[in-house]
C-alpha cells in the first residue's frame, strides 16, 4: 500500500540534462552542467566536468581528476560502496556495477520507493574492478548497448588467449590491441597477466596515463613500457595496447608489422570487424550481453524496467513477453553505440 500515492517519476525523471531526482535535487550522469551530480563511472559521456558538486566513488573521482584536472568541481564527495548519503529528501548509495574501476550503480531511495540506475554494467568477473551486485528494487534503469539476442559475449580468457597465440604464430610481428583507454585496456592487460603472460607490454600514451592511475589505485598491471621510447625491433613478438582509433592511424607506422586486433563486443558482427580492417577481432566487452541483461531483469523482477541508451526496442519487447513492464527513456547525450568502449 505504501506506493499508492507515489508515482515513480516523482522520484526520478528523464530530462534534457539526464535523469533527475526531484526529492534530492540532483542528476545522475548529467550530460549538461548542473548544480549537483551523482556519477556512476568515469567514461567521458557519463562523467563530465563543471558540475557544482559531484558524488562518486573514490576511483571515479580520481579518474575525473586525471582527465579534467583536480578542480573539475568545487565539491567532491566520496561515497564508499554501500555508504548511505542523504541528499535533500532522498537517500543515495552506490553498489558495484562491474563495468570499469570505480563503476557503481546509483541506488535512490525516497518516499518508500527504491530505484536503481545501473549505469553501464557487466556481470562477469573482471580482474580490475569489483563485481556487479544485484540490488532488489522497484524500478531498474538498465543500459541496452548490446540488447539484441545476437550479442552473447564468449568467455574472455579464450579471447585473450587468441591474442597471445598470435604472438607465438608471428614472433616477428606484434599484436596491436585496440582497446578503450579506460577500463578495457587495463582489463586486457590484467587478463593477459592472469594467463601467465609476463613479458613487457607496450602502451600508447593515452593508455599509459590511465594504467598509471590504475596502479596508484591499487591495480597491479606488471611490466608496462611506452611505445614512444621503444625501438621497433624490441616490440616484435609483443603486445601493444592503444586506443582503437590508433589501429589505422599514422601512429601505428612506428610498430613492427602489427596484427590489428580490436577488443569490443561489436566484434561479434563480422561486417563491423571487417569495416575497421581488423585482422584479429576479440569479443570482449565491459557491457552486459543479451543473457546478462535479461537474467539480471529476471533476477530482480522489478515493478518497472526503464531502458536507456542502446537497442531499447528489443529489450522492451522482450520484457513485455516476460510480463515485465518496460519502457524506453530515450535519453540523449550518451554514446548509443557504446562507442569504442563497447
Amino acid at each position: 500500500m505504501k506506493r499508492v500515492m507515489v508515482t515513480f517519476s516523482d522520484i526520478l525523471m528523464p530530462t534534457k540534462a539526464g535523469l533527475y531526482c526531484p526529492p534530492g535535487d540532483f542528476y545522475i550522469d548529467p550530460t549538461r552542467q548542473v548544480d549537483r551530480a551523482v556519477v556512476t563511472h568515469g567514461h567521458a559521456d557519463h562523467a563530465r566536468a563543471g558540475h557544482g558538486a559531484v558524488l562518486a566513488t573514490r576511483q571515479t573521482l580520481a579518474i575525473m581528476g586525471s582527465r579534467y584536472g583536480a578542480n573539475f568541481t568545487p565539491a567532491q564527495q566520496t561515497a564508499a560502496l554501500g555508504e548511505r548519503h542523504k541528499i535533500g529528501d532522498a537517500t543515495v548509495w552506490l553498489a558495484p556495477a562491474g563495468h570499469v574501476l570505480g563503476s557503481a550503480q546509483a541506488v535512490i531511495e525516497a518516499k518508500g520507493v527504491r530505484i536503481v540506475v545501473s549505469g553501464d554494467y557487466k556481470r562477469r568477473r573482471d580482474p580490475t574492478c569489483a563485481r556487479f551486485e544485484p540490488v532488489p528494487c522497484d524500478v531498474f534503469v538498465t543500459e541496452a548497448t548490446f540488447a539484441l539476442p545476437v550479442f552473447r559475449h564468449p568467455d574472455d580468457t579464450g579471447e585473450v588467449a587468441k591474442a597471445l597465440h598470435m604472438l607465438e604464430v608471428f614472433p616477428e610481428r606484434c599484436v596491436l590491441l585496440g582497446a578503450y583507454s579506460l577500463g578495457k585496456a587495463q582489463r586486457l592487460i590484467g587478463l593477459a597477466r592472469e594467463a601467465g603472460h609476463d613479458a613487457p607490454i607496450y602502451l600508447h600514451g593515452a593508455v599509459e596515463k590511465l594504467c598509471t592511475l590504475y596502479e596508484t589505485l591499487g591495480v597491479r598491471l606488471g611490466d608496462l613500457r611506452p611505445v614512444m621510447k621503444a625501438e621497433k625491433d624490441e616490440m616484435r613478438g609483443h603486445l601493444i595496447v592503444a586506443p582503437p582509433q590508433s589501429l589505422n592511424d599514422k601512429w601505428s607506422r612506428r610498430l613492427p608489422d602489427p596484427v590489428a586486433a580490436f577488443a569490443s563486443g561489436w566484434m561479434r558482427v563480422r561486417a563491423r570487424a571487417r569495416q575497421r580492417g581488423v585482422e584479429l577481432p576479440l569479443i570482449i566487452s565491459d557491457h552486459a550481453d543479451w543473457d546478462e541483461l535479461t537474467t539480471t531483469i529476471e533476477e530482480l523482477r522489478p515493478e518497472e524496467v526503464w531502458v536507456t541508451h542502446g537497442r531499447e526496442d528489443a529489450l522492451v519487447h522482450w520484457a513485455g513477453t516476460q510480463g515485465i513492464n518496460a519502457r524506453p527513456l530515450s535519453l540523449v547525450g550518451y554514446d548509443e553505440e557504446g562507442g569504442d568502449h563497447g
Binding site: 539476442p149 563480422r270 561486417a271 537497442r311 528489443a314 519487447h317 522482450w318
Partner: peptide, 27 residues
C-alpha cells in the same frame, strides 16, 4: 525457435542471414 520481433531486429542489425542465424540460435 526465436521470437519473430527479436529475429527481425537482429537481422536488421547484422545484415547477413547466415550470421544472424548462427548468432541467434539458442545454444
Amino acid at each position: 525457435r526465436t521470437d519473430p520481433v527479436l529475429f527481425r531486429l537482429s537481422y536488421d542489425y547484422v545484415g547477413d542471414m547466415a550470421e544472424t542465424i548462427s548468432l541467434l540460435w539458442p545454444a
